[in-house]
Amino acid sequence: MKKIALLLVFTIALTTVSAQTKKKQILLLGTFHFENPGLDVAQINTFNVMSDKSQKELEIITDKIKKFGPNKIFVEWNYQKQDKLDKFYNRNTDSLLHKKADEIVQLALRSAKKLGHKKLYGIDYNDADFPYDSLVKGMTAAKQFDLIKKNEELMKKYETDQNKKIAKYSLTELLLDVNTKAANEDNISWYLETAIKGGKTDNFVGAYLVSEWYRRNLYMYALIQKLTESKDDKIMVLLGAGHTAMIREFVEHNSEYEIVELATVLK
C-alpha cells in the first residue's frame, strides 16, 4: 500500500509540475499598414483591403484566428490611451468594418468580436525617439558615402519589392510573406548592419536610433507580459511587422512562451 500511495503522490506531483510548466502560445501577427499614412521611412503603396475579395479573405483569416482561440489580443495602440481604445472597440462594429481599413479594425477587432472578447489591449509605446534625419546627417558628416549608398539601395529595394508584391499578391499571401523568417531577418538586419554604423567614432547617432527602437519594442514586450494573466493560455499580438520581428527575438529567450506561426494558423 505504501508503494501505491507513493506512486500516486509522485504521479500527482509530476502532473502538477507539467501543468505549471505548460507554455503559453503566442501568435505574432506582423502586418503592413492597411491604411498607409506615409509616416514610415520606406514609402509603400496602399493595398485595398476594402475590396470584396480582401473582405472575404479577412472573414476566412479571422475565422481561423477564432479557431486558434487567443484569450487576449494586443494591438499597436498607445497603452496610455486604453480608455480611447475601449470606446473605439464599443462603437458600431458593422460601421467600423465598412469604413475603417486600419488593420486594428479589420483584423484585431473583427477577430475579437468573433471570440466574444470585451476589449482589445493597447501596448504601443510612443515616447521613444527615431532620429532618422539625424542618422543621415551623421553619415554625411562622417563621410560614410558607401554606407549612405547602401542605405539608399536597401530602402529602394524594399520599396520596389513590396510594391511589386502589393500589385500581385492577395491579402493572405501578403500577410504570410511579411511573417516569414526571411522577412523577419530583413527587418532586424537594417538596424544591426546599417543604421548602427552611422556617425563618426565619437557620434553614436546610429547606435542611439537602434537602442531607441529596441527600447520601444522592449516596453511593448513588457506590457504583453504584464497584461497576460496566468489563466491566458493563448494570446495574439497584432503589430507592424518591424515590431513583431523584434518581439519574436525576445520571446525566443522566454521559456514561458512558445511562438505559433501564422502559416500554421491559416493552413
Rank of each mutant, 00 (worst) to 15 (best):
Y214A: 12
T11R: 12
F68H: 01
K3Q: 08
Q162V: 06
V136Y: 07
E35Y: 13
E261H: 07
V265D: 07
F130N: 10
P131E: 14
I123L: 10
G206W: 04
K3L: 11
L58Q: 13
K3I: 07
E252G: 01
T194L: 13
D133W: 03
I12C: 00
D161A: 12
A19C: 11
A263G: 03
H117E: 02
V105L: 02
T16G: 06
K64G: 04
N217Y: 10
N71L: 00
N45D: 15
E35M: 08
N184R: 14
H33P: 02
V136N: 03
K64R: 06
A13R: 11
K137G: 02
Q106P: 04
F88C: 02
K99M: 13
E252Y: 07
R110T: 05
T264F: 03
I104F: 12
A19Y: 10
Y132P: 06
L175I: 08
L171D: 14
S111H: 03
Q106K: 11
V49G: 08
A13M: 10
A182E: 06
R215K: 15
P37V: 06
V251L: 07
L223P: 10
L27I: 01
N254E: 14
V210H: 10
T201N: 08
L218N: 13
V178S: 05
L120P: 07
N36E: 15
T31S: 14
F47P: 02
V75M: 03
G198E: 14
Q55T: 15
K226H: 12
A108Y: 03
K23E: 13
R91A: 02
L107M: 08
K100T: 15
E256S: 12
